[in-house]
């Protein structure tokens, strides 16, 4: 097992948390009411703290200090998933991504708590005790926006449909996945974790009557399928469905992933046009004042 593979695993996790935290921090001062402003800011602070804890382990393998790892790398050396760097857009998209990211992160952290990489497993145990609050927050908002009123439900389901394909690429295999699996540093493959995550998301979407975010031609307003008191809804008919999320197939009543990703490449340092402006802002102070301290 090379230290390089472990370093890349750590950086993938740390970069996800750092970039996600940076995006969420952009809401500070702008959320429509103060409790949510505190929540977004607090989650952002947690995520950046989690990134720091992971960079600290990486620093022991790599030799660079944590600021150099977090802020001193060129854009193509960051290996977060592309979904993390996307702009916040509106609250619907922010919540959709928050829900998709944190449910994915929960699956990943559960797997990593059994890692043979001792320092990582120890940190992961601690992170899980904090991420539970993020997950709870995401689920509260999932239920709130999914329940309507109609505009909220419409915008939320559109945002989920936009975010979901790229969120799947959180589980894009790491370049060294085979070595990491053989070593036990990564106890479950990206494919296995993706399958477990799709079960969670699939059930939540079905419970909310929002499975249509996955379906081809699902452009009719969601307002028309709000649950009625009789329980009758055209959507409950078991007609054959064509799914519009690339790489997703429905087999035996489950959504399964069939090999292709949208917005992949993040794990190999390929990012979208949205990353450069984020990186410029995030690293501005570090680049302008090398070695600056608080």
């Amino acid at each position: 097992m090379s230290a390089d593979s472990r370093l890349r695993l750590l950086l993938a996790l740390a970069d996800d948390e750092l970039v996600m935290g940076h995006r969420l921090s952009e809401w500070t001062g702008w959320v429509p009411y103060v409790e949510e402003d505190l929540a977004m800011s607090s989650i952002a602070q947690d995520e950046i703290g989690h990134a720091r804890a992971l960079y600290e382990i990486a620093s022991q393998l790599d030799g660079r200090d944590i600021d150099a790892l977090a802020l001193g790398r060129p854009t193509q050396d960051y290996c977060h998933a592309v979904i993390c760097e996307r702009p916040n857009r509106d609250y619907a998209y922010t919540v959709a991504r928050h829900y998709l990211y944190d449910t994915a992160d929960a699956v990943r952290l559960e797997a990593l708590s059994a890692s043979t990489f001792k320092e990582l497993a120890e940190v992961v145990r601690v992170l899980r005790t904090e991420e539970r609050y993020h997950l709870e927050h995401a689920r509260v908002w999932f239920r709130r926006l999914a329940a309507g009123p109609v505009e909220a439900r419409q915008r939320f389901s559109d945002a989920l449909a936009d975010a979901l394909p790229e969120a799947m690429a959180i589980f894009e295999p790491l370049p060294d996945e085979e070595a990491l699996l053989a070593d036990g540093a990564l106890p479950r493959s990206g494919d296995a974790m993706l399958a477990a995550w799709l079960d969670v998301v699939g059930k939540d979407l079905e419970d909310a009557g929002l499975e249509r975010v996955l379906e081809a031609g699902a452009d009719a307003p969601v307002g028309e399928v709000l649950p009625t008191s009789s329980g009758a809804s055209e959507m409950t008919e078991d007609a054959p469905r064509t799914l519009r999320v690339p790489g997703l197939e429905r087999r035996d009543g489950r959504w399964v992933h069939a090999g292709r990703f949208s917005g992949d490449g993040g794990r190999r340092g390929r990012h979208s046009e949205d990353f450069l402006p984020l990186w410029e802002e995030m690293t501005a102070l570090y680049r302008a004042h090398p070695g600056a301290r608080w």
Binding site: E35, S41, R125, T129
Partner: peptide, 29 residues
């Protein structure tokens, strides 16, 4: 709200004395 002014605190409200207060967030496995 589970999120307050620091990572370890939540925001609570007392219906009896009508004061908002903070709570230390339970943390554990």
């Amino acid at each position: 709200s589970s999120f307050g002014p620091t990572p370890c605190r939540s925001i609570r409200y007392c219906n009896a004395c009508r004061n908002p207060f903070e709570g230390f967030k339970p943390k554990g496995e």
